[in-house]
Design a protein around this nucleic acid. Structure first.
Lengths: 157, 157
DNA sequence: TATTGTTATACTCTATAACTATA
DNA sequence: TATAGTTATAGAGTATAACAATA
C-alpha cells in the first residue's frame, strides 16, 4: 500500500489519481455527469415535474411497487416518498392501490396519463442523450466496454 | 465510419435512439452518473457538508469570486448563494471580503481550514472516481477521445 | 413484536419579488 | 437607472422520530 511497484493494482490506482491523462478523463466524466443532470432536469421541467417526481414516475412506469421499495430505489427515507407520490397523485399521474396480499402495503402505480407522461419523458431523455449519435457503431461498442470495465461489470483486465 | 448505408446525421441520430447497442450505452452512462453523484454526496457528507456546500467550497478553493459569479457557476439564483455561503461562513470555511474595485461586490474566499477541507474533499472524490484505475493507459486515452466526441470537444467525426 | 405507511418537525436548496447600497 | 447582494416568502426534497394499522 505504501511503496509503489509498477504493475500492482495499488500502484496503478495511485498513479491514476495524479497523472494528467487520468485527471483529464475525470474532468470529462464530470462534464458528462453535469450535462446529463442538467438535461434531465430540463426534460422533467418541460412536463412540470421535479427531478424526484420524474424519477419516481419513470420507475413506476416500468412496474408498480410498494412505497417502501420506491424509497429503496431512490436511496431515501420512506417518509419522503409519501410527499412525492402525494404530488404525483394530485396531478393524476399516479394512484395508490391496496396490495391484496398484505393490507399494510400500498402499491403505487401510474395512471394512463402517467404512462403517457413517462413515455414522453423517456423520449425527451433519449433525445437529451443524443450526443451518442456523434459516435460510430464501433466507437459505441468501444465505449460500452470501457464503461462496463469502469463499473466493474466487464471481464478481468 | 458509419456502418449503415444512409449516412446522414439525421438518420444516424434517429437510429441511435432505438438500436439496442445505443440503449445499452445510455443505460451505462446513467449508471456512471448515478454512481458519481452518490459518491459525491457521500464524500461531502463525510465532511458534514451538503452537495451544494461542497460544490461552492470546491469552486472557491480554485479562485475567490463574487457571490454573483458563484450563482452563475451553480446555475442558480444569486439569492440562494447567500444562504449557502452563510452556512460555510458560520462553519469557518469561507469568508466574505470587500472588493476594492467595487464596493457593491463581496468576494467569497476560503479560509485556511476551508482550503484544507476542499483539498481533503477533492482527494475523497478522486478516490471515488477510482474505477478509472481499472483501465490501462491506452484505454484511458480511448475513453478520453470518446468522451470528447460526445461533448462536442473533439475533431469532426 | 416487527413492519408499512404516514404524520410532525426541522433543515437545506430552490425561485420569485422586494429591498439596500452602491455604481 | 442599473447592478450586487440581501431579505422575505413559499414550495420541494431530505432525515429523524413518533404513530396507527396490520402482520
Amino acid at each position: 500500500m505504501v511503496t509503489q511497484k509498477p504493475g500492482t493494482d495499488d500502484s496503478r490506482a495511485a498513479a491514476s489519481r495524479t497523472d494528467p491523462l487520468t485527471l483529464e478523463v475525470v474532468e470529462l466524466i464530470g462534464s458528462v455527469v453535469a450535462r446529463y443532470y442538467e438535461e434531465y432536469e430540463v426534460a422533467a421541467g418541460k412536463h412540470a415535474l421535479t427531478g424526484a417526481q420524474a424519477r419516481v414516475l419513470g420507475l413506476l412506469s416500468l412496474e408498480p411497487m410498494p412505497m417502501r421499495r420506491i424509497a429503496q430505489k431512490l436511496k431515501c427515507e420512506p417518509s419522503n416518498v409519501t410527499g412525492i407520490v402525494d404530488r404525483l397523485e394530485a396531478r393524476g399521474l399516479v394512484e395508490r392501490r391496496p396490495d391484496p396480499a398484505d393490507r399494510r402495503v400500498k402499491l403505487a402505480a401510474p395512471t394512463e396519463e402517467g404512462l403517457d407522461t413517462a413515455r414522453s419523458l423517456r423520449e425527451s431523455l433519449d433525445f437529451a442523450r443524443e450526443p451518442l449519435g456523434e459516435l460510430s457503431r464501433e466507437e459505441r461498442v468501444s465505449l460500452r466496454g470501457l464503461l462496463q470495465r469502469m463499473l466493474g461489470q466487464g471481464g478481468a483486465p
